[in-house]
Write a protein that binds this DNA or RNA. Structure first.
Length: 966
RNA sequence: GGGGGAGUGGCGGAACUGGCAGACGCGCAUGACUUAGGAUCAUGUCUCUCACGAGGUGAGGGUUCGAGUCCCUCCUUCCCCA
């Protein structure tokens, strides 16, 4: 082995990458004679540099795509950029760079970095979402949706910064303030564009056609939040209909008086006497409830502060208070408002409504725990059976009337301490008293079922299904996004830009000031003409970037196509995506949007040509009901845990916890260092020259390093400064500010791409991720160095047949393990199996019992098993042995059970389920034979001591076991 | 606030349907080769015990011939969304 040149990935990797490019090894072309495999990994946002997380997401997916290709599939594995979005605008505002300049420069850098992975990306299919050739079709899809009643204009709350005159994204708002300027942000209603997301809500609840992780399916189901219940119409009494004496300021009587008997048939009778005649002066307010069985317990109503009726129904007496509350609510975010543990706030409007089931007159309040964007923005409050309503009622002294009572309990509205949202028997509910209530939801609950029928019969209410899911708000008041191709004519009607005028292009000459919407300020963009040539205004909102990423997998099919978003010929062959990999953070947003988009395209005829082509080739168009068949989520690579330097500081002690140090020393341990003259401990935090030291018992000390102090760090030669001291790092997400970022470029320069790829696959569970460990990579370095030498080792002409058979067995067992592991996204065990094989090969070379022919047969298989994981070294060694280019077009080694089979196996002997020992037996031993061997073994004989076993259990299979119960 | 995971040696992690817990690797220890070693090679490495043996997968309980795996209660953590 002496004359072998050392393994040098820095030389061989770029060479092979170039060779693969030149040979167009990864160009994927439609070939109906071969089965296809569309492997897709979520495309990156061009933020600047490629992160180790990108490598972790992409290289295992690449390995699997390569493996599929060797299994005989025609594989498509494309890459592109999700290039619109906020960071580019922030860069523009902060550094005066145009978003396009910033984005394209980043993409150039990232393309180079992506190529260094040695992945099988087909770059001829690259798509870039901010390219006009791409967003032309994003706009075209908007038109398609608009023309099919899937897009509409509506009102929604936005984060509005009065200072910047602009709308902010949720992530730009921290504690109700703009994160950049610290100026307050208010909630403002604006007219915006929506897609009818709920149109496909029910279909999106059906996962029967797709193999997606259970957690994702659960999250999507909860996100859609389907519930069954009823719409019920209450009627508000307008101020004019109320007589002066009914206008009691403040809340209604608390119910703590004489009429509060919970068993009373007409609980609100005291309030019930003065409501006006039906019809006149009544404003209908429809509420949605999942619990129509509790209608008799509705003792007040609550409207969202933004509800349009608030101004109309508020009495003059209450007006000032109500307006102040509405104003205050505008300054709160939904997150704050929906926090359940928060103290409830609210204001009485002075108005009353009639509960349609019992004609009770109940007060109408406004409170910020009711959201205008949710349901109808109005609720009936049933304090006895809803936690939030209960808290509200108690805070404001509102009446609590129980209408459901569990067996063996007697509720009293005045003394209940918490709401009872569960089962029982209906009480105080007129005709329904005595009806049993279960924990079932919707019609399955007999009480709900009966009440809904009753409401419908009387025309008071109607069965209804509601979704937590809201329509998809796609408007963004931003520059760097796909324009919405809409024109507003002078008379206010909406026109769409004609197809031959698409795309509506973003103007290049914009000024990014961070103030206002750049597009709205751009005169030549805004001012246009309508279809009649009359002056008109353009829509200045752009589309949510989730719109771009909802169809990028289609653009890869034919990125150059300019007559359609994608070519039907390509789509009919490649779709749907077979394997999709990406992070869990997209579980409910991107992955639901893309499913919606796919169903919308199906129903608006966009796939019609594709369907026709599929049928022509005998494929069923229903295969395209879902965009991605199999989904797997990778975990996240976290920063490396690092201990801080051990430090001994001496100087002037200021107080018992603070020192001004003129001498700081890093020591290997604290032996003999401890004295009262010095401070010592692990450096857990450093802010400039202020150090925090922690002793093993957990006490902390502050050390301020004075100017001109000596700093000694023995591991770093030369004079040291305080900046070179390493402080402790916990396992956390990587970020520049924490200083725990792992740079893949540096790793590739040091170890080579194959090592980095294999290490990422080996060191973590793909689905879980975990903290980076810079030491562990040595194991992979050794593995590849070993393989480099083993493959080129010299072997004897003839070998020992038994040893050769043993090696063959190990090789074939490895085929099975690696194959199974790659199928199952268990990349770590695939590498482990290959390392195990390395151990066997190494032993074989050392012992010299394997002949050249047998050894070459083994290597021929081993290199192909390595090829998906470490493509460069596998190709290089393959070539060194004189085998033809390219290893990546070779078939995957075929598993042969006979060759993998063991002849003799250890029979596991268990007594009462615990292993006691092993007996060598033939692998194909019969049940009776195994039992006899076990009963004959020393352990069983000793345990039984002449007695009969109670039971003898044989567990067959490759590893036979016998359990003797005594 | 809502939702989803995860707890196995000093560390990363194995254990496919309940069937030998700790594969593979890092680290560590001892030895070898070396002027030297952060290179390489060999051996060892869950805990207790000289040993025979016994115990052991966050805690407690249950089902089973047999539980890391299934069920119940609790604890600790991480992630995502709003």
């Amino acid at each position: 082995m002496n004359d072998i040149a050392p393994y040098n990935p820095q030389t061989i990797e770029p060479q092979w990458q170039q060779r693969w490019d030149e040979a167009e090894l990864y160009r994927s072309k439609v070939d109906w004679d071969k089965p296809k495999h569309y492997a897709l990994t979520m495309l990156p946002y061009p933020s600047g540099d490629l992160h180790i997380g990108h490598w972790f997401a992409m290289t295992p997916s690449d390995a699997r795509a390569r493996y599929k290709r060797m299994r005989g599939y025609n594989v498509l594995f494309p890459m592109g950029f999700d290039a619109f979005g906020l960071p580019a605008e922030n860069a523009a505002v902060q550094r005066g760079i145009h978003p396009a300049t910033w984005t394209y420069a980043n993409m150039d850098r990232m393309r180079r970095q992506l190529r260094s992975m040695g992945a099988m990306f087909d770059w001829s299919r690259e798509m870039v979402s901010c390219d006009p050739a791409y967003y032309k079709w994003t706009e075209w899809f908007f038109k398609t949706f608009y023309n099919n009643d899937l897009a509409y204009r509506g009102k929604a709350l936005v984060n509005w910064s009065p200072t910047l005159q602009t709308v902010l994204a949720n992530e730009q708002v921290i504690d109700g303030k703009d994160e950049r300027t610290g100026q307050p942000v208010i909630q403002k209603m604006m007219t915006q564009w929506f897609f009818r997301y709920t149109r496909y809500a029910d279909e999106m609840l059906d996962f029967s056609d797709i193999d997606w992780p259970e957690p994702v399916r659960i999250m999507q189901t909860n996100w859609i939040g389907r519930s069954e219940g009823a719409h019920v119409t209450f009627h508000a009494l307008t101020p004019e209909t109320l007589t002066p004496e009914t206008l009691t300021p403040g809340p209604s009587p608390s119910g703590r008086g004489g009429d509060s008997s919970a068993a009373s048939e007409t609980p609100n009778s005291a309030l019930d006497t003065q409501h006006p005649a039906p019809g006149e002066g009544r404003i209908p307010i429809t509420v949605y409830t999942t619990r129509p069985d509790t209608l008799w317990g509705a003792t007040f109503m609550v409207l969202a502060p933004e509800h349009p009726l608030v101004a109309k129904i508020t009495t003059d007496v209450q007006r000032a208070e109500v307006e102040a509350y509405v104003e205050a609510a505008a300054h709160k975010t939904e997150i704050e408002r929906s926090a359940e543990d928060r103290e409830k706030t609210g204001v009485f409007t002075g108005a009353y409504a009639i509960n349609p089931v019992n004609d009770a007159r109940i007060p109408i309040w406004i409170a910020d725990y009711v959201m205008i964007s949710y349901g109808s923005g109005a609720i009936m409050a049933v304090p006895a059976h809803d936690g939030r309503d209960f808290a509200f009622a108690r805070k404001f002294g509102l009446k609590v009337v129980p209408v459901i009572q569990p067996e063996g309990e007697t509720f009293d509205g005045d003394t209940m301490t918490e709401a009872w949202p569960y089962e029982g028997v209906m009480i105080n509910s007129g005709p329904f008293n005595g009806t049993p209530v279960t924990r079932e939801k919707g019609r399955k609950n007999p009480a709900i079922n009966a009440v809904i029928d009753w409401l419908e019969a009387r025309g008071i209410g109607k069965e209804a299904v509601n979704y937590r899911l809201r329509d998809w708000l796609i408007s963004r008041q931003r520059y760097w996004g796909s324009p919405i191709p809409v024109i507003y004519t002078q008379d206010g009607t909406i026109e769409l830009a004609p197809d031959d005028k698409l795309p509506v292009e973003l103007p290049q000459d914009v000024e990014m000031t961070g103030y206002g919407n750049p597009l709205a300020q751009h005169e030549t963009f805004v001012h246009t003409v309508d279809s009649q040539g009359r002056p008109a205004r353009r829509e200045t909102d752009t589309m949510d970037t989730f719109m771009c990423s909802s169809w990028y997998h289609l653009r890869y099919l034919s990125p150059g196509c300019d007559v359609a978003p994608f070519s039907a010929d390509e789509a009919a062959y490649w779709l749907p995506v077979d394997t999709y990999t990406g992070g869990t953070e997209h579980a409910t947003m991107h992955l639901l949007y893309t499913r919606w988009f796919n169903k919308a395209l199906r129903d608006t005829g966009v796939f019609d040509d594709t369907f026709a082509e599929m049928k022509r080739h005998g494929r069923d168009p229903r295969e395209l009901n879902e965009p991605m068949l199999q989904l797997r989520n990778q975990g996240q690579i976290l920063g490396e845990q690092r201990p801080g330097d051990l430090i001994v500081a001496s100087g002037r002690i200021e107080s018992n916890r603070k020192m001004f140090a003129d001498h700081v020393r890093v020591v290997p341990s604290f032996d003999g260092q401890i004295s009262t003259e010095v401070y010592w401990g692990e450096l857990i935090k450093r802010t400039e020259n202020l150090l925090t030291l922690e002793t093993p018992d957990g006490s902390q000390y502050t050390v301020e390093v004075v100017d001109g102090a000596t700093v000694e760090i023995p591991s770093i030669p030369g004079p040291n400064t305080v900046n070179q001291l390493k402080h402790h790092l916990d396992v956390e997400r990587m970020s520049k500010s924490r200083g725990n970022v792992v740079n893949p470029d540096e790793l590739v320069a040091e170890y080579g791409a194959d090592t980095v790829r294999a290490y990422l696959m080996f060191a973590f569970d793909f689905m879980k991720g975990g903290p980076w460990d810079s030491q562990g990579i040595q194991g992979v370095v050794r593995w590849l160095n070993d393989m480099w030498e083993i493959v080129q080792a010299s072997t004897p002409e003839a070998g020992d047949p038994a040893a050769e058979r043993a090696l063959e067995r190990r090789v074939y067992q490895a085929i099975e393990r690696v194959t199974y592991s790659l199928e199952a996204f268990s990349f770590n065990t695939a590498v482990a199996a290959l390392m195990g094989l390395r151990n066997d090969l190494k032993t074989a070379v050392r012992e010299g019992k394997i002949g050249t022919v047998a050894f070459r047969d083994a290597i021929h298989i081993v290199l192909r098993l390595m090829a998906p994981i470490t493509p460069h070294i596998a190709e290089e060694l393959w070539a060194k042995l004189g085998w033809p280019f390219s290893i990546h077009t070779q078939p995957w080694p075929e598993y042969d059970a006979a060759k993998a089979a063991e002849e003799v196996v250890p029979l596991v002997v268990m007594v009462n389920g615990r292993v006691r020992g092993h007996v060598e037996v033939a692998a194909d031993i019969s049940e009776d034979g195994a039992k006899a061997a076990a009963l004959d073994s020393e352990w069983v004989v000793r345990q039984l001591d002449g007695a009969q076993p109670k039971r003898v259990i044989f567990i067959g299979g490759r590893e036979p076991k016998v359990n003797v119960v005594v």
